[in-house]
């Protein structure tokens, strides 16, 4: 799966969970830019991503995601060869 496909899928998940317009998301978008992106929503986002890409993140990885770009990078790394 290439980066553009990952970005497309992630944007769809973000839009569903936070009810926002996909076009407002950039690599630098962080929790403080999105209404409702609290710790429960953060984990809801992560579990949706894990399900979509059939991957699993550790607690340390989950806590370390600060921006949309961090998430894209992590998914890209975990899906290499898939």
């Amino acid at each position: 799966m290439n980066r553009n496909e990952i970005v497309f899928q992630l944007n769809t998940i973000f839009a569903d969970i936070f009810n926002i317009d996909k076009s407002t998301l950039t690599d630098k978008t962080s929790a403080k830019d999105v209404d409702g992106w609290d710790s429960v929503a953060h984990v809801m986002l992560i579990t949706s991503i894990e399900k979509k890409f059939a991957i699993r993140f550790t607690g340390r990885e989950i806590a370390g995601f600060k921006t949309v770009g961090d998430l894209i990078d992590a998914v890209e790394k975990k899906t290499i060869g898939k």
Partner: peptide, 20 residues
């Protein structure tokens, strides 16, 4: 301790998301 609290918290939050 950092990994313990992060793992415990994220496991709990995963279950809370499921509960929601």
């Amino acid at each position: 301790p950092v990994d313990s609290i992060l793992d415990y918290t994220t496991v709990f939050l995963r279950e809370q998301v499921r509960f929601q």
